[in-house]
Amino acid sequence: MTIAAQLRDVSQVFGDFTAVDGINLDIASQKLTTLLGPSGCGKTTTLRMIAGYSQPTSGSILINGKDATRLPPEKRNLGMVFQSYALFPHMSVADNVGYGLKLRKVAGPERRKRVTEALDMVGLGHLAERRPKALSGGQQQRVALARAIAIRPDILLLDEPLSNLDARLRLQMRAEIRRIQQETGLTVVLVTHDQEEALEMSDDMVLMRSGKIMQQGSPQDVFQRPANRFVAEFMGYENFFATPEHAQATVRPENLQLIGRGETLNSGAHNLPAVITQIAYRGVDVMVRATATDSTGTAVDLLASVRADSGATSRLRLEPGAEITAAIRPADLVPLAE
């Protein structure tokens, strides 16, 4: 696996504020890497440093093995799609897409061919002569994408490209971008705050918080084995408690087994006595909230998702005030680092 870009001890400090704190990151070639995190975590700052719009305060950035730390953006041959799309309003769609090619002195016929190629790839071949302001948000986004792809960049950088789209388009474009990346074999770095998006699209996920990398790995890794509480919470985990072996552990609501008080699951399951506080019937499942006591004696809030057709719903009295036991199989228990 080749490395398209490397960040070595890269920091970005603005006065008192450290936006990016000495991170080390390898971007694998021909893979889609997401920088994921809450706003202010430094993901966009990192992206902009890779693109060259800001210089790291310390550390170095290598692109294709060569030191690019001080290289200005126009010399990096990277394609960037901005959150606001940043289409040139005074040019047609075709001229927008062809802008980078013109700069690279690609001859007329060849340029037109590549512009058509790029537009066809995003499904907008028929809108080549339109002006950006005549396009919908989704169409503008795709033009921005085509414009970045047309120059055949070494890395394609996307800054929250889907956050301005409505829910339906967002889902559509997730699949589109993933498809384009796989078809072209482009190296893509995508910034997002949406963990669903990251899970669906990534080969590699990088979770950031306060300028540091909290966890990096495949979607399966990150989702099934979050390294710490922040990552777990960000990936939608509820239920945080202590066990005799681990100071911090978690379990997904679907994996929290509800059994009667006094019962136990076999196979060394971990048991927490609990009292139900709230029930919500949601059709496919039933959401059960309960208060339990963990191994250190601390009260913890638990959330369990029980399938409506499971044995638990028929066997147990699922109503507020009922005393139950919440049991977790060893395989489902996720220990967390401090």
Binding site: Y53, E74, A86, F88, Y99, G100, R104, R147, A148, I151
Partner: peptide, 19 residues
């Protein structure tokens, strides 16, 4: 009123500052 990022976009596509 203009999108401040259009100039960055042009740079990213390879245009020198004067261009």
């Amino acid at each position: 009123l203009a999108d401040p990022f259009v100039e960055e976009a042009a740079r990213g596509l390879g245009a020198r500052p004067f261009k």
